[in-house]
Design a protein around this nucleic acid. Structure first.
Lengths: 152, 152
DNA sequence: CGTTAGAATGCATATTCATGCACGATCGAA
DNA sequence: TTCGATCGTGCATGAATATGCATTCTAACG
């Protein structure tokens, strides 16, 4: 039984597993036969969670959860960003009231190299860039994701 | 609709929500009526995941750890700071998710002369220094307190 | 051995979740 | 304004997941 959990962790890390049935099949390839019921309990015990990403879902370890969905991030930007401005090497992004936080998280998750970090208030967030010269490209990149509605 | 997502994030952080039906009811208390279908989609977009804990399940932000205890300043830094970077005369300090606020307070209390002020978001805070030249020494000072764990 | 308490698992099913489809609202372009 | 494209949503329903209960396995003990 320890074996099984061991395999579960391994399989889940090696390939995207979107549901328990698939996990069940994969385990089968290793000669391990179990029912979905047991897997449900195993996953619960292992603390694995199903996260959205790439359109579909996938089970991951809590640690991996971070980078798991750039796509959802894009949607969030599209959803909440209303305006972009800048000053020096800072980008000032305005959002729908109360949503600066999610947008900041979304940007963080993208892990862009030019971005040093973000700080979010209620409807405004500041994106700190490494150099003023990156203001244009990054703004561009964000606008792209937002859908080029030319905002600001 | 933006309102709804805003509330979802808030509700989910304030109390344990184990399933979408409950979330639906909670939203109802705020005058927001939606179907489970929509919530399923919202949760997907917001990147919330259902994790096991306390016997039951609960929706959480992927990186929720939130443990804002009252620790001594130095201890707080040691506890929550994960990374330090800079740009211009700004220091960008990354912390464990949700703990930028306490860290910022801790730094404020230290009343360092080089520090003009701080602004904290969720997991990032910006420390405004008087001069770019103070970036090195201050970073150094913080690293010292944090325990010199390589960090960024 | 036989007995037994507890853990692990399956089975059947209730519960919860995701999504194809359709329709009304919204936004832009002509 | 009118048309077309897109978006947001509910509805209905199939897919996926969780769980109560019964059964089987395991290990410890007399």
């Amino acid at each position: 039984m320890h074996d099984r959990k061991h395999w579960i962790l391994r399989i889940v890390q090696e390939q995207p597993v979107g549901n328990q049935r698939k996990l069940q099949r994969e385990l089968g390839k290793h000669g391990i036969r179990v029912t979905q019921s047991t897997l449900s309990r195993d996953l619960k015990e292992l603390g694995l969670v199903k996260v959205a990403g790439d359109g579909g879902y996938r089970y991951v370890l809590p640690d991996e959860v971070r980078g798991a969905d750039v796509l959802a991030g894009k949607r969030i930007l599209k959803e909440f960003v209303t305006e972009i401005d800048h000053a020096g090497h800072l980008l000032v992004v305005k959002t729908e009231p109360g949503n600066a936080q999610p947008v900041a998280r979304a940007l963080d998750r993208m892990q862009w190299p030019e971005v040093v970090g973000t700080v979010a208030g209620d409807d405004t967030l500041i994106v700190v860039l490494r150099h003023p010269s990156q203001v244009q490209p990054v703004t561009e990149k964000i606008l792209q994701m937002v859908g080029r509605k030319k905002i600001a």
